[in-house]
Amino acid sequence: MPAQNAREIFRNGLLGDNPVYRQVLGICSALAVTNLLANTLLMGFGVIFTTTLSNWTVSLLRNYTPRRVRMIAQVLIIASYVMMVDIMIRAWAPDIHRFIGPYVGLIITNCIIMGRAEAFAGKNPPWPSLLDGLACGLGYTLVLIAIAVVREPLGFGTLLGYTLPARDLWWHSWTIMVMPPGAFFMLAIVTWFARSQLDQKQEKTT
């Protein structure tokens, strides 16, 4: 596979090959954190950081990694990075850790990181891999934000913690939007919308 240029890598990660609605990766964590926008942003930040770093490392080691154990090697690299960062934040910024601590497990088991390491970083040089990690992390975050800006207002009547105007006069919260099933339905709608938009574009260009 030839190294792609930076623009193409970004466009693929954000739209064409978006990890969430195209490759259907990272669903477990998308469900848990998208009922509040603030949580979504924190999770997105963690995933962008980890995909970028682990993609780069996996790519550096790609020529030395035996094919049979490449997956073990990838998970090991990802888990180690996440744990080191986790310990450092817990040591130097314990108050921030109280908020992001619960995401650590979610980030390690996020299959986007693994999926990109397997699909891209194992075959490409370090710097394009780093870009690909960044782009896919951003693509993941964008889709999560799209879900969160629907779920939080419908579920709680707030956005980023701020109460919507005149909420108490007319609003009744949709509990289902707070619960994981709400995320399934929203994710299906986002997938539907994004895929039909993309398909239309493809028909036009061909």
Partner: peptide, 23 residues
């Protein structure tokens, strides 16, 4: 099923309904 919803989309909805049942 509408084209964009085929595959993962409709499966997500199925799982959503099933998880409601498991609650």
């Amino acid at each position: 099923v509408p084209a964009g919803l085929r595959g993962p989309g409709i499966t997500l909805i199925v799982i959503g309904i099933m998880s409601l049942a498991f609650v």
